[in-house]
Simulated assay, not measured.
Amino acid sequence: MVEVYDPYFVQKTNDVGIIGLSSLQKMTAAMRMLAYGVATDSVDDYLRIGESTAIERLKHFVKAMVAMFSERRRFWMNRSLFLHILSIVEAYDSYFVQKTNDVGIIGLSSLQKMTATMRMLTYGVAADSVDDYLRIGESTAIERLKHFVKAVVAMFSERYLRSPNNDDISRLLAIGSNRGFPGMLGSIDSMHWKWKNCPTARKGRAPLVNYLINRNDYIMGYYLADGIYLQWATFVKTVSSSQGNKEIYFAKAQESAMTDVERASGVLQARFAIVKGSARFWKRK
């Protein structure tokens, strides 16, 4: 796993054909210093590794251990979740299974392929940036990203990429009610539906719910919105130029609740930096 995480441990051959230290030698030197507390220059006689090189390898090894085995790690997820997604994607699409070509050369592992994909999704890095890190070219990285996205949509859409069900709506209504807005389903600015100019497709459309305000029964939920949206029953907007204590209090409460919803949505989007440049794969058909 250290080899996969850090190519520094991969055995290399220099320009004149001399084979360098093996990954086993590099890791053995690091483990001797960690386990036995020996001095860095003591591994020279045993493994033919100089003091400065031993220190460098020890630093790389420790960084790799922290990165690979800490409970909450890279890509905004813990290791167990990362491996769970990897196993499902690998089972769905054989493209991610490690293969051996006709001359016996072992190809990239499924861990390398998914790591390259997750770096592009979470950090928003360019496709060619994973070449130095994982030895994956630009076109190959893009191809793997497309395979990964298709696999995730196919395997997880039924549970996570769906419209809210009754349990979801009940949970959202409870949250809205606790904030002083019974019947609230969220903020319209954080929904990101495919609209053009204004959401005419949502006019008068919202999940049917039951709630009580000032002894009046209502059967349609609503979304918080700012002043740019039209006057529709499904939008509850702030009061501009508030006058009187009631209007001032309502405006503050509405804007506070809407900001909290949008902030939560923003945190989720920030975990996947690629959404800031999602048009990079756009093509004219």
Rank of each mutant, 00 (worst) to 15 (best):
E138R: 15
A126Q: 15
M65Q: 11
R135T: 12
Y223R: 09
G37K: 03
V239Q: 02
E51A: 10
Y249V: 10
L224S: 08
L208A: 06
K196Y: 12
G107I: 07
S52K: 12
S242C: 05
L86M: 08
R271A: 04
T28R: 10
Q231R: 14
L24G: 10
R57T: 15
E56M: 13
Y36W: 13
A30F: 07
A273P: 03
G183Q: 00
Q11D: 01
R284K: 13
S80K: 07
H147V: 01
E255W: 04
F250W: 05
A54C: 03
V153S: 08
F156A: 07
G17Q: 04
A251C: 15
K146L: 10
P207A: 00
S139H: 14
M31S: 09
Y5I: 06
M31F: 11
K63D: 14
Y211K: 01
M33L: 08
S242G: 09
A251L: 13
F156I: 05
L34C: 06
N245V: 07
S22V: 05
R271Q: 05
F281L: 13
F181A: 02
G180M: 06
I85N: 02
M114W: 05
G221C: 12
F82Y: 09
Y46M: 11
K283Q: 10
A154F: 08
L212E: 08
N210M: 02
G277L: 08
L34K: 13
R74A: 04
L47Q: 02
R271D: 04
K59E: 14
S139P: 09
D45H: 14
Y46L: 14
E158P: 11
S109Q: 10
S241T: 09
S163A: 14
Y222E: 06
A174N: 09
L81M: 06
G221V: 07
H84E: 12
V43C: 04
K63R: 14
I19D: 06
A127G: 06
G20D: 02
L47R: 02
K237W: 00
D189E: 14
G227S: 07
Y160C: 03
I136S: 11
N216D: 10
T238C: 02
S240Y: 08
A54M: 03
D168V: 09
M65C: 15
V125G: 10
S52R: 11
L230M: 15
N14D: 07
L161R: 01
N216R: 05
N14L: 04
G137C: 15
I213R: 03
I213F: 05
Y123F: 10
E51K: 08
K150Q: 05
A264W: 10
F181Q: 02
D44C: 11
S109T: 15
M191T: 15
Y8K: 00
V103R: 13
L208I: 04
F181K: 01
L161K: 00
V261Q: 12
S163E: 12
E51T: 11
N166I: 15
N166D: 15
G50A: 04
L83S: 08
W193E: 03
Q231L: 12
A253G: 11
G37M: 01
I85H: 01
Y160K: 01
S242P: 12
E262N: 15
A67C: 12
Q231A: 14
L268K: 00
F61K: 01
F9W: 00
I219F: 12
Q98F: 02
V261G: 07
Y133K: 14
R215W: 01
F61D: 01
